[in-house]
Amino acid sequence: MSMIRLLCAECMKTFLKKRTYLGFLIILVVVPLVEIAMKIEGGRFTEASLRSFHQDFFFIGSLFNGWFVAHQLMNSLWVHIPLLISFVAGDQLAGEATAGTYRLLLIRPVSRTRIFLAKYLTTLAYAIIFVSFLGVFSIGLALLLMGTGDLLVFRGGILVLPASDVAWRFFAAYILAGWSMATIATIAFFFSSFVENAIGPIVATMGVLIVLLIVGVLPGEYFEAIRPYLFTSHLNVWMGLFAEPVDWSDIVRSLAWLGGTSVVFAAAAWAIFVRKDILT
């Protein structure tokens, strides 16, 4: 069986499951809900944020537009997206055990490594498709509802990016977000390799994420010293694109950390999978 056919088979298996679309369904509900609510609220949010300026300046035009809403949504959702991704990634290997199809899968004349690779690539494909869907849907709907304009970014102050300079940043930001979520998917996949129930990997992934995120914001010299080494400190790498000038070296460093984390967890998952004693 060629690798491509194996990959297609795994993709079909994944994308024929109803739970695969649970994340998409949630996005289809939450994104319009948030964006319509923001549209109804109008620019009150940006007005309030810029209140300290109103005494000295008057404003021409508005910074409340589709780009702003899409950016706010991206800011808010990246904490919740890992959960939706781990629904599917955590089920990749553990799901076979739960369904009792592990043995059936492995008696085919295909090496375990190739099966592992097909499943892992399917997981990554899901993560990337999911993030792309979120990007296209949230940006598309926001621009449709609220139009374009200059982008207001709150990061260490106030930054306004000209409308002509925004689209590429969103495009690149979603690529980087895809890279971040691929790391989350890999961790969920890793946990999936040594349990026989899909709930375990989801809880474990979210547990790791929450613990490390908390450690990452704790004050104190010790925590500050370890912060750069936590992969969670690099998950928001895409935020670096909404700065002026963009610190590319910082972005490359974060991508390397995330890539390294993915490699380590994928290698560990592979080592577990090829040695696994299949009893179901």
Partner: peptide, 23 residues
């Protein structure tokens, strides 16, 4: 931006993009 002024003290400002100007 483009500033329009008319006596005695009427002001109107137009801009294609966002602008903030001092009071």
């Amino acid at each position: 931006a483009t500033l329009y002024f008319k006596r005695p003290d009427r002001i109107h400002v137009k801009s294609g993009n966002f602008a903030l100007l001092p009071r």
